[in-house]
Design a protein around this nucleic acid. Structure first.
Lengths: 222, 222
DNA sequence: TATGTAATGTAATAATTGTTACAAATAACA
DNA sequence: TGTTATTTGTAACAATTATTACATTACATA
């Protein structure tokens, strides 16, 4: 168990012995589930820190007509919905279901608070995890807010290129994944890429995008 | 100053004396700015907890062509970007500028961490603030992700009605505000409302929406 | 290297949404 | 109560994007 916790973002940076001390000092539960079990139902209160020790789960949102809409996969040593434990409305927005035999370690909210107060590393880790998630969400909102596919793409390319200060960008996702991230259809994204290439603003060779007209790309980004 | 801090979400629940003790024990800075001063530039590292004691500021995002895109207003006793202090990439995504004469209290990240470890109320408050924000962002993403305006609206109405278990919903925002939240144009939203009324699914009387065909509304929500 | 699978490029058409403009209704307030 | 500003309803038209379908190219792996 401790070998797994060492890898978890929450316990990162602690030694085996430090983690052992914590598990001796504070109460916790080990929860085991078979394949295809429901771990948390949408709407259920989230009052525990759940860290996956082994296995893989799926978080899916169910719409009002009963259809699953968004799905994400989580696996060891990830944490289930860390940002919901302390939210005022702490109902789970998703249903969590195991994809394989899965085990969790669970700490109650009170115990977690005790641990955070007493261990600075874990406090910083926990804050970093939920802050990073917040940052991810607000960046995603940026992209969803830009009106046209062209402006989403221009921003995406500029952001990626800026980090490396390069005029070429390597796509790390498939078009389908990028289209999903933007919330658009895949052929529409491909068409837009094609249009920008025709206009000589970029050139594309499979996964590599080269920027030719930086200023025009910047103008598209609004 | 302490009178202001009592109202802040971070110091909520503490007595005057408790806050006084904290301000005596831990180092802080008071920062005063005139009207229209830049407090933080986009891209600057965020390494302090900044709480507005007095005044009003504006956070605006600048796109690559130099145009301001999104703007939000913050005023006393709100906190500037609490979720960015502990993020691994802690560069501010927005420029913060004063709209009036403004004063802040600033605690360094290390001091804040000390305070969080030593005061359970503040720890819980801080976690609640950033968790609530995370929740707000993920709900917003939901609405931006639904493809059609009809599905956004259906979800919005269902979510609002469910909380009160009622079949009527009172809009608390103008159409313009709702359209902005959804990221769509106002006339498009109005047209969609009209279509749903024509179909007999809902009826609208200014700010009050009454649900007539719940099942059909649920079917629209995907 | 052959072969099946996944990813990409592209086109025609349909559907949705934005834009612009203006009238009507309501709210705010002197 | 009258006047002005804000909000809402609505229409015509333009622009954008989705849908569907299929060919082509790259990729994994047997």
């Amino acid at each position: 168990m401790i070998e797994e916790l060492i890898k978890s973002p929450i316990f990162k940076g602690l030694s085996y012995n430090e983690i052992e001390e914590i598990t001796n000092k504070y109460p916790y539960q080990i929860k085991n589930y078979d394949k295809d079990s429901i771990v948390k139902l949408s709407g259920e209160k989230c009052e525990n820190l759940l860290i996956i020790l082994e296995g893989k789960v799926q978080a899916q949102m169910i719409d009002y007509s009963g259809k699953a809409v968004t799905i994400s996969e989580l696996f060891a040593p990830m944490t289930i919905a860390p940002a919901f434990i302390y939210a005022r409305q702490n109902e789970m927005p998703v249903t969590v279901q195991t994809l394989t035999k899965t085990s969790f370690i669970a700490f109650s909210k009170n115990t977690l608070t005790d641990i955070l107060q007493n261990n600075r590393t874990i406090l910083l880790n926990f804050l970093t995890v939920i802050s990073d998630q917040s940052k991810f969400l607000s960046e995603k909102i940026q992209f969803l807010t830009f009106k046209s596919i062209k402006s989403k793409l221009a921003n995406y390319i500029l952001k990626k290129s800026q980090q490396g200060k390069l005029h070429s960008v390597i796509l790390t996702e498939t078009q389908q994944e990028l289209a999903d991230y933007f919330g658009v259809a895949r052929p529409s994204l491909a068409r837009t890429l094609g249009e920008m290439e025709n206009d000589g603003i970029i050139s594309i060779s499979r996964k590599i995008i080269t920027i030719h007209k930086l200023q025009e790309l910047m103008n598209l980004s609004k």
